[in-house]
């Protein structure tokens, strides 16, 4: 059931898989963040049509399961003549989906800002864009940092689905090792432990930040 020698042998592969998981998630998050800012400003726009567009993006990408989105991108892009590598498809899938969630998180952060602050900025002659980037976003980011970290955890977990399109991230690596060694339990447990190490550290960090901000505000 367990074979320590094989585990030690497989460890470098697992760690390489973990590295892939982390950087794919990080790229997905970074791109998703940009998408999120875009969708969020659509949703907060004064034009009804733009608001509806933002809302539609959010409900579509939150409503459809991530696995289906990934498969869609993976199969659709080649059909459109875009022969992109699997990792590009994976990052695109993660980014499009997390963009919808991040948009909602950011919107929540922006809506909690007192209206008076924005009015004050406007009265001082700051443009709409400057107000957004210098006054609103920094505060929204700080207020939503715990929620954003939580989203990172969700994204790292969601990235396990990339294994379905054949990329050797952590889950796929464990799958390969498990299949070739017939030590299913051992390698899936190893993968679970690695996910735990990363995600529980992130969760602890989120908890600490939340307490610090709670204190700062009180």
């Amino acid at each position: 059931m367990f074979d320590l020698a094989l585990l030690v042998q497989g460890l470098p592969l697992l760690l390489a898989g973990l590295w892939n998981t982390v950087w794919l998630s990080a790229c997905g998050l970074a791109l998703g963040f940009l998408i999120g800012i875009g969708v969020c400003s659509l949703k907060l726009s004064e034009r009804g049509a733009l608001r509806r567009l933002g809302g539609a993006y959010i409900s579509v990408f939150r409503g459809i399961p991530l696995l289906i989105q990934l498969l869609f991108i993976y199969y659709l892009l080649p059909r459109l003549g875009l022969d992109v590598p699997a990792w590009v498809a994976a990052i695109a899938g993660l980014a499009l989906c997390s963009g919808a969630y991040l948009a909602e998180i950011l919107r929540g952060g922006l809506l909690t800002l007192p209206v008076g602050q924005v009015e004050a900025a406007r009265l001082l002659g700051l443009s709409g864009r400057t107000t957004l980037t210098r006054i609103k976003l920094p505060q929204a980011l700080r207020a939503t940092l715990p929620a954003l970290l939580n989203e990172v955890i969700l994204l790292i977990k969601a990235s396990s689905l990339i294994s379905a399109v054949g990329l050797a991230e952590l889950t796929r690596t464990a799958q390969n090792l498990a299949a070739s060694s017939f030590l299913q339990l051992q390698f899936y447990l190893a993968a679970a432990v690695l996910y735990c190490v990363v995600n529980i550290s992130l969760a602890l960090l989120a908890g600490r930040l939340e307490r610090r901000f709670a204190k700062g505000r009180a």
Partner: peptide, 18 residues
């Protein structure tokens, strides 16, 4: 904490293959 920190897919693999 452990269930929340691991992907659902890995849990399924553990259950079904492990």
């Amino acid at each position: 904490e452990v269930i929340r920190a691991t992907p659902f897919l890995v849990q399924l693999f553990l259950l079904y293959y492990g």
